[in-house]
Amino acid sequence: MTLALAIETSCDDTAAAVVDDALHVHSSVIESSIDQHRAFGGVVPEIAGRAHLATIGPVVRRALEDAGLDPHAPAIDVVAVTSGPGLIGSLLIGLSAAKAYALAWDKPFVGVNHLEGHLFAPLLERPDLDWPLVTLLVSGGHSMLVLQRGPGDHEVLGETIDDAAGEAYDKVARWLGLPYPGGPEIDRLAAQGSSKALKLPVSMTGAGFDFSFSGLKTAVVRATEKQRDVSLADVAASFQAAVAEQLLRKLRAVLEQREVRGVALAGGVAANSALRRGVEQLALEYAVPSYLPSLAMCTDNAAMIAAAGLHRFLKDGASDRSLSARPNWPLTELV
């Protein structure tokens, strides 16, 4: 058995987990600094950096203890850490700490792509998943459609050409005067509104699998200026439907054009109820199994980093101690 300790600090969550190569999660600890960012309507890099530094030690210690390991001499085989993409100041804290733990215990360490981590998340709950799998990865920072032929074997079919879906949620939520983060708030409101109340255009990004969300906030503003009588709930429902519509339309195109044996959702926006319903329906329609991860697996966590890290470590070996953080590391540039 190969056992990994993983550390994840790419955004506002400080996380650590212990996972083995059969993808059993021995422990998973997450400490979020989200409460400190709320007032600013978005994650503030400097605040995130300060919070990571204050929590990294205790979070790692708890992950080791929860897994029943000696925190000063754990029987792990590798330290995995997110080295990109993400906020540079946040990434550097996890990366520096991971290198130090690895040095202290004389263990190898491996840098992990955060997006590849998200792609491994479904496997942690459903190791029996069938390939090839099409995964809709949607979060505050990313929106992409990925074809997975097997663990770590993936092709990016399409991605957002401007804002991420989660970003669009935050922008509209801010404009509506809703607290940050906008996703759960809009989702909650939308449940009481009509998705047909506002006429919103669906962004056209051509025949490919790319998305575009940057025009959606402006469209919502314009539409509400025309129809002043709509309720907040109706705006939320209409906006949410427009986002899901675009994502699902592209997902449907993949199901039409590619041979896949499953559909998975990943990333923070995968918690969204409209999107979950839509993916389930699409999967039924195309008679393939759908995989909708639990909330804990959608959002950032270190267990998924451990899973991706174990795969990379067993396949490509350890990373060099001089590894730098890559804040813009694309999924297409994995070696």
């Binding site: 804290i93 520096s96 700490a97 130090a100």
Partner: peptide, 20 residues
């Protein structure tokens, strides 16, 4: 410099926590 400080501190925390 904030970023540099945090790299040093994170390394120091990692080493001392790891070794007790």
């Amino acid at each position: 410099l904030f970023t540099g400080l945090r790299v040093g501190l994170a390394t120091a925390i990692g080493l001392t926590d790891a070794l007790g």
